[in-house]
């Protein structure tokens, strides 16, 4: 999966930064599982008509989205949030290379 765009959504009062990652293809269950490697906590609501998921590593990021969409919303925390973003992008794009 390729990240084709990153849009800044909001700077939060809690110090977090919300961004939207745009992918070149639709999010699949396999892709969610792949991204969840990076998360300490994964929630996947598979009984919804369009499953909602949320990945979280406290203090670093939350990533949420809906299976079938091409975007996810990422909230980054901490002073090294740009590095966290780069790691998430790299993780997402590694999947494409396989």
């Amino acid at each position: 999966m390729k990240v084709v765009g990153i849009k800044q959504i909001e700077e939060c009062v809690d110090g977090g930064s919300i961004r939207e990652f745009q992918f070149d293809d639709s999010i699949t269950k396999e892709f969610i599982d792949h991204l969840s490697q990076k998360a300490e906590k994964t929630q996947y609501f598979g009984s919804l008509p369009r499953p909602f998921f949320k990945l979280e590593t406290p203090g670093r990021f939350t990533l949420k989205g809906v299976e079938g969409n091409r975007t996810v919303q990422v909230k980054l925390f901490g002073s090294d949030r740009n590095r966290t973003q780069e790691e998430l992008v790299a993780l997402a794009e590694r999947r494409q290379e396989k």
Partner: peptide, 13 residues
């Protein structure tokens, strides 16, 4: 179907 969502929840933590 919202009410059944937690059934599908898996939580590594």
């Amino acid at each position: 179907r919202l009410g059944r969502t937690h059934e599908g929840c898996r939580n590594k933590a």
